[in-house]
Write a protein that binds this DNA or RNA. Structure first.
Lengths: 188, 188
DNA sequence: GCATCAAGCTAAGACCATTAGCTTATGGCC
DNA sequence: GGCCATAAGCTAATGGTCTTAGCTTGATGC
């Protein structure tokens, strides 16, 4: 029997692709094993069961989202940076809904330090962008929650097909972000 | 063997309670059957398998959410009505996270007329509240999307435990809604 | 070339949804 | 009040899932 040459990354990436294309529920050990031309017990050599597999997808998604936000915000400031970060967030969720959904398991696993750190890293990018407004600590938390809620909510509903009407989604999103940004007052 | 006296409603309500208490994934036929003192194949006399059970929970949740929004908005107008409806939405999600999550299956089943109607009825309440602003049709859609996104996003993150910091969540939510309401301009 | 390690395998147990077909409680009707 | 059709709930069985145990054998270091 020739070796398939798997490693943790290949297994997690295969799972992430299935999650994006067919939803997180479609990520089963049997499905991933078939995809990789292997029997499902073999996956235990690389990930800790189904939970470990989903956790791997979550870590991957959170790291990629963090990178996408950094990329978008770099070289920009104020409302410009905020809009770019929000747009990148939305684009990531639409491009990788399964990975993003996996990242939502984080709150259910507060004892998993790596997972919490990965989620925190995402929020930290948004917090850094908001620093342009010189808000006090409490106002920053309120602003952060507002932006996270709005962007997460919009992107999740959109990815799930929750917006039925044939009216420009980019425009809706732009207005939402503009309203919130206006609510912050002038930067600096 | 004495009859258990089940009917569709009792089965769905048992499932809804499990969904709220333990998450939608915990809603299995075996679990619901045990709860009702019955064997799982017996449930097929009342619901169409696991999918039918979750669909029933979704219909229940959407109807209750619609009622909660109507109740909140009645006798109010403008920003007052909007804030009350948003607060009722958030309260419902926190009180019944499992039912609410089940309602999120709607977009995945656009061919299910009853389910679509139930989801539409929820959105229609929000649309009615926004009528106080006399927006044109397109602006109404943008405003509706903004409020749905913000409230859904905030409540979902909160219900999942996604807001870690010990800073007043009611205040954060109030500010979010106030920012969006300000963005609509003056009613009338 | 050989010993070690681990990748991938088969076999098996536990749990789940689902279907088929049985028994029997229940309610309508004479 | 008694009969009978309906349907509620049952057991048995199938096929899918995850998971563990333990085997075989390919790959690697000396």
């Amino acid at each position: 029997m020739p070796r398939a040459g798997l490693d943790r990354d290949r297994v997690v990436i295969a799972a992430a692709q299935i999650a994006d294309a067919e939803g997180l529920d479609a990520v089963t050990l049997a499905r991933v094993a078939t995809e990789l031309g292997v029997r499902s017990p073999s996956l235990y050599n690389h990930v800790e069961g189904r939970d470990g597999l989903v956790r791997g997808v979550a870590l991957l998604g959170l790291a990629q989202l963090r990178d996408a936000l950094r990329e978008a915000a770099i070289g920009r400031a104020g409302a410009d940076a905020l809009a770019a970060a929000a747009g990148a967030y939305r684009a990531y969720v639409l491009a990788h809904p399964g990975r993003y959904a996996a990242g939502a398991i984080t709150p259910a696993a507060p004892e998993d330090a790596d997972l919490v750190a990965a989620a925190t890293a995402v929020v930290d990018v948004l917090a850094a962008v908001l620093r342009g407004w010189s808000l006090d600590e409490e106002d920053t938390v309120h602003a952060l929650r507002a932006f996270r809620s709005a962007v997460h909510g919009f992107a999740s509903l959109e990815a799930a097909g929750g917006f039925g009407l044939p009216i420009d989604l980019d425009a809706s999103f732009g207005r939402l972000i503009a309203m919130l940004t206006a609510g912050l007052g002038a930067p600096g």
